[in-house]
Design a protein around this nucleic acid. Structure first.
Lengths: 257, 257
DNA sequence: TAATTTTGTTGGTATATACCAAATACGCTG
DNA sequence: CAGCGTATTTGGTATATACCAACAAAATTA
């Protein structure tokens, strides 16, 4: 146990930092499947002792593994191996939740907050409403097998969907609106970006505040092309991938040049 | 200087960690525009002294700011304010480089490597070729105003584009193929995910190895729907956002339920 | 048995210190 | 002025230590 692959200055040119070696070791264990999903990683102190390094160094390695998305932290309970990534098809707005439930992914939805707000400039600029028009706003946490996966904030024009908030919000909105209001999503303008998590988001998702996640905004339109809903999701970056079909639009641009 | 907003146990309930306060301060400076793009951030030691904290604590704050994408590290030269995010429309495959050059974004392309390889299982499963079929593979670094932004690795079927590697690869591939080989990109299957950077990628982009970026894979097809090129880009996550138009496909799913 | 207290584990924060290597700035020399 | 060597600045790595708060499990009490 003393001559681990991690040595100080054994004789070679050596420049690999120690914590990198630990990272490598952890990656190995996780990728090889020795530690299945949700297995507890060795605690900082144990890792430090086992490899003959200081706790801070062990900590660095573990944090790196977290940043990579290979493991997640559960507060002071420890760190655990992340579950597999799932695929979200942004070209299919019938949506994730419909699929997730049908495919038996173990999806559950938790309503964090809901209420009525007045349209601000952000909303007014995206949807065909006046400033101050009433919107339902609700925030929900989506969990896969009780594992926090993403947060969704949705804004829908209140006028179009009376008493929406009285209904069961722990189901797919797409389905809800279709069943009770005869409004179907038809197209959506989507923006995807990587950004740092805010305080509350990080709390809900079980991540550190300064960590990054994937933000997915969508402006949902009906058959006539009228937007009626604006949604914003924050995903734990390591838990998803997004697929889409792209089609070339303005071919003229290149020919004219 | 002693009674900064950062105090130890002054009397209130106090639970905001010191480094959080520093982060807040740095965010402020950057967002307020006091420090424009590419301005040097205070070095660790200076920050530590100025706020009366240890260097390691200052370092933590700076690393967090990096992770958030607000600043980037330039090796031992220091840390600098990140430039603004730019938008990549994945529904418009005429592509980024065409736009970037036209819009005068200051795009430059650096060829990292190029050569011929034999198709492995990954390629063979995605493109209509046999295992072992020859592919041109080239890797390029894309810079905006000399700032590393993303790396692209492309694999094209060699048979279809003779002597491609002899041509000038510091231009948009889409344009290149269109001009010289009469092959135009028509549709693309795209996957976007967040993932950790590998060693060399991090080096080229000027990031730490364990940091995360955005990976964008695209399988490019011609008018007849035949795939002829597979590309994989790694973006510095904070530098881009991706837009797309989505259309509902299988409406039957929900009706039948 | 059920509720409560105690104890040990674990991560979170913070410091002070040390040495290294890359990059830069400066001053000297030709 | 150009070229060279040196000193300084800066981030990167690593340690040893300390205390705190959240949490879980074990021991104790009602």
């Amino acid at each position: 146990m003393s001559n681990d692959s991690v040595s100080k200055r054994a004789g070679s040119t050596e420049k690999v930092p120690r914590f990198q070696a630990i990272i490598e070791h952890l990656r190995q264990q996780i990728h090889s499947g020795t530690w299945p999903e949700h297995t507890a990683l060795p605690p900082e102190r144990t890792l430090a002792e086992r490899f003959g390094i200081s706790r801070m160094t062990a900590r660095r390695a573990l944090l790196a593994i977290e940043t990579e998305g290979l493991a997640y932290s559960a507060g002071r309970r420890g760190r655990f191996v992340s579950p597999a990534r799932l695929t979200y098809d942004i070209g299919n707005m019938v949506s994730f939740s419909a699929h997730a439930q049908r495919d038996d992914l173990g999806l559950s939805i938790k309503v964090i907050s809901s209420g009525v707000i007045a349209a601000d400039t952000t909303l007014a600029s995206r949807l065909p409403v006046e400033m101050g028009e009433e919107f339902y706003k609700y925030t929900r946490l989506f969990l896969i097998k009780d594992h926090p996966t993403f947060i969704e904030e949705e804004f829908v024009i209140a006028r179009l969907f009376p008493d929406l908030l009285e209904r069961d919000l722990t189901q797919s909105t797409t389905l809800l609106l279709e069943r009770h209001y005869d409004t179907a999503a038809h197209t959506g303008n989507i923006v995807i970006r990587m950004r740092a998590l805010r305080e509350e988001e990080a709390g809900l998702l079980g991540l550190a505040t300064y960590q990054a996640g994937i933000e997915l905004e969508q402006l949902i339109c009906d058959k006539s092309g009228q937007p009626f809903c604006f949604g914003r999701q924050i995903w734990r970056g390591e838990l998803a991938e997004f697929t889409a079909q792209a089609v070339v639009r303005d071919k003229t641009d290149i020919q004219s040049k």
